[in-house]
């Protein structure tokens, strides 16, 4: 099954304007759609789509209050789309969608869809660093710290679900859609990679009680760690609420910075994720602070006392 990764994550929200404000400030490009929904796109065309929760034609909500309505997976070509439709038609209704895709539910009730990918190939520079012993990434007089540099999400990286039945859910993605487990958190869930993407994960599952079913977060790849820091710092300076980060994960090696959002899920910047192929052997570890973060920074606006000691105290 030649799935490349998430093309679009669809939400039904109670506050469209707040979501718009957040996603534009996050660095995504607003694209108003003919059906009244708003698309917020990364540089390669992958996107978050926002509808009002009572909009007509929206996939049914989950049994919980989570605002996720659908995950649209991009596949390599029409043959890949046909193969998925044929496979899933064996035991469920697969609907033809406007625009040529197909939609259905996975085995634990998440609405999913598949389409020939909208991902445009990117041809962009990497983060350039100078490292002693290696050829300079930046030549003489090329400045690395540019406060005015754009910091725009390049592509939708991955989605993470709270699932009430992790075993059933992972079997669906592995057995029916050909996802591969790259690493595994014991008692939490697997990191999954589809066949047409070498990223460490495009999907991660967290086992939770029924009443939490939904999307935990959606992540976008940035150019590199510096751009992630720049984008996240701009969010902090605008008053947005950091949930976790900045830091660097162990499994996947990617840098991370998670923010609360008006959709009631986290939206993550990530950068510099590991790549894998079929020669990789999955690792396993318990899920805790020690195994999930190689290191963690937290921003603080007060980094030093300014203007002398407080009244009545000696310095």
């Amino acid at each position: 099954m030649r799935i490349m990764g998430p093309d679009e994550v669809v939400f039904g929200v109670d506050d469209v304007e707040a979501s718009r404000t957040f996603l534009v400030d996050f660095g995504l490009e607003e694209q108003r759609q003919a059906d009244g929904s708003l698309r917020f796109a990364a540089l390669d065309g992958t996107a978050i789509r926002i509808h009002h929760r009572e909009a007509e034609g929206l996939p049914a909500p989950l049994p919980t209050a989570n605002s996720l309505r659908q995950t649209v997976w991009g596949v390599e070509d029409q043959a890949a789309l046909d193969a998925i439709a044929e496979e899933l038609s064996q035991d469920r209704e697969v609907r033809a969608l406007p625009g040529g895709g197909v939609g259905c539910r996975d085995d634990v009730g998440f609405e999913i869809a598949f389409q020939v990918t909208v991902r445009r190939p990117l041809d962009l520079p990497p983060e350039r660093i100078n490292s002693p012993g290696a050829a300079p990434g930046r030549g003489a007089n090329q400045i690395g710290a540019d406060e005015t540099a754009p910091a725009l999400p390049r592509t939708l990286s991955h989605v993470v679900y709270f699932t009430p039945d992790m075993e059933r859910m992972q079997r669906f993605y592995i057995d029916r859609l050909g996802f591969v487990v790259t690493d595994h958190f014991t008692n939490t869930g697997p990191f999954l990679r589809p066949q047409a993407n070498d990223d460490h994960h495009v999907l991660f599952l967290l086992q939770t009680p029924d009443y939490m079913q939904g999307l935990e977060h959606v992540a976008f790849h940035m150019q590199g760690p510096s751009e992630l820091m720049l984008a996240g710092t701009r969010m902090i300076n605008k008053g947005y609420e950091s949930f976790w980060g900045p830091g660097k994960h162990k499994f996947g090696s990617n840098w991370f910075w998670y923010f609360n959002s008006p959709m009631g899920v986290h939206v993550e910047y990530d950068a510099d994720m590991d790549k894998h192929d079929e020669r990789w052997t999955a690792r396993e570890a318990p899920s805790n602070a020690e195994t999930s973060q190689l290191f963690l920074f937290q921003s603080t606006p007060k980094w030093a006392p300014m203007g002398g000691p407080p009244p009545g105290k000696e310095s």
């Binding site: 929200v13 109670d14 506050d15 707040a18 404000t21 957040f22 209050a65 989570n66 605002s67 939490m212 939904g214 935990e216 605008k238 008053g239 947005y240 609420e241 950091s242 949930f243 609360n260 959002s261 008006p262 959709m263 009631g264 899920v265 986290h266």
Partner: peptide, 27 residues
Amino acid sequence: GARMAWKKDRFMSGDGRHIACFAHGAL
């Protein structure tokens, strides 16, 4: 200890009827 707003001072749900935690959508 999770902080709840989605932006400075924004602790209310879109319809204004509930306090919301914008980390995981609790009302």
